[in-house]
């Protein structure tokens, strides 16, 4: 019985990991291709949630979850063209500062537009409640969340591995100078990657809005988790991020099962252990650009 309960936590952790993945994968892609740690990533997550609430008011939940990420992704184009682009080759500290500053500005803007009080989104009543599969309890809504996350994951994998777009991006991660020498401009690819990345973050925000409160500082909460996932997974590794996201979700669930008070600290302990034994992360490759 004990084992079964533990297994239930593991499965639930995998579901939660799927949601972490949505945010961390974009952060990892932007970092891998542009060499920029986008500390404003959480702001796009928060924007995704707020915009989805506005849209849901008029068009309902389904439309909100589709339109909000697209709208935020378009905003991501402006972000890349006018801000991020200036910092790809600059000292990393500059891009850290500018994206951190941007995160603060975005949080205050949200406070000005939507107010300091938390907002609440409701989920369609058909998605409320849970189903029991085998011996495991699943929230219906989270099953949907997991399906969407899996769909996005497959989509991104196909895009990176089965298209010419993906080939250029992967080459850009490994050897940006060689790509340039072949006469390919990486900038339009970078715009697309940023668009995809912040779009995924916004999708995460829109999907999480019905589960937890939507408030101006929500971006700060998620950026820490996403960053930990990327570090554990290893830079430049697609499957590393996937593995790390699931692992963080599982470790958190199991920790809460045994020592509830340590639940939120568990991922930092995990990061510590991984970095002790594998400084480049679980599946991180040796990348010239960063070493």
């Amino acid at each position: 019985m004990q084992l079964l309960f533990l297994l239930e936590q593991v499965v639930n952790g995998l579901v939660l990991g799927g949601y972490y993945l949505l945010i961390a994968l974009g952060l990892s892609l932007i970092f891998s291709v542009g060499g920029v740690v986008n500390l404003a990533h959480g702001a796009f997550y928060a924007l995704g949630a707020y915009v989805s609430i506005e849209i849901a008011r008029y068009l309902g939940f389904g439309a909100a979850v589709v339109i909000s990420p697209v709208a935020v992704a378009l905003l991501g184009i402006l972000f890349e063209r006018f801000i991020l682009r200036r910092f790809y080759t600059a000292d990393p500290i500059l891009s850290l500062l500018v994206t951190f500053g941007l995160a603060l500005v975005a949080e205050q803007l949200i406070r000005i537009i939507w107010g300091a009080s938390p907002l609440s989104a409701s989920m369609p009543s058909g998605l409320k409640g849970s189903v029991v599969l085998g011996d495991f309890l699943f929230s219906r809504y989270r099953l949907l969340l997991l399906t969407v996350a899996a769909g996005v994951l497959v989509g991104i994998w196909l895009l990176l591995n089965k298209t010419s777009f993906g080939r250029v991006v992967r080459a850009g991660i490994q050897r940006p100078d060689m790509v340039a020498a072949l006469g390919i401009r990486l900038q339009p690819y970078m715009t697309a990657i940023v668009m995809l990345g912040v779009g995924m973050a916004a999708l995460g925000g829109a999907l999480f809005a019905p589960i937890a409160l939507v408030h101006p500082a929500m971006g700060q909460e998620i950026i820490a988790v996403a960053f930990v996932v990327v570090v554990i997974g290893g830079l430049g590794s697609f499957w590393g991020v996937v593995l790390a996201a699931l692992l963080v979700g599982v470790v958190r669930g199991v920790t809460i099962y045994f020592v509830p008070a340590a639940g939120e600290a568990s991922m930092y302990v995990l990061m510590f252990l991984v970095l002790m034994f594998r400084p480049r992360g679980l599946l991180g490759e040796r990348i010239e650009k960063f070493e």
Partner: peptide, 14 residues
């Protein structure tokens, strides 16, 4: 429950 907890699903399972 830690003050920065937003996801309660592990607690709900317990």
């Amino acid at each position: 429950v830690s003050t920065d907890t937003t996801d309660f699903s592990p607690y709900l399972l317990k």
